[in-house]
Amino acid sequence: MSDKFDDATQKELQSFLEKEQAQARLHATIFNLTSVCWDKCITGTPSTRFSRGEESCLANCVERFLDTSLFMVQKIEEQRSLSGGS
């Protein structure tokens, strides 16, 4: 078993992988947001640059999507506690 990594190297690789995985998850989230908000905000034919309205729509879209997520969690929690919570 001489071809195995030693403990220090294994630890280093593990934290490297965790970092890369976190990065990939972040990327996937943003990628998904882009897709959703593109459909919402970019309704016309693409021009050489965004209009101010499109730009602020994209930013608002991301913010409100996250607000919605928090809101939904909150409402579901409320419903759960109303229905007895058992």
Partner: peptide, 24 residues
């Protein structure tokens, strides 16, 4: 022409979403 512009705008949109999300 439309496809080329669309590609550019999609990258822009990605960057805007990225910036907004990370700031949030």
């Amino acid at each position: 022409t439309c496809l080329e512009r669309c590609l550019g705008r999609y990258m822009d949109a990605f960057n805007i979403c990225s910036r907004t999300y990370i700031a949030r």
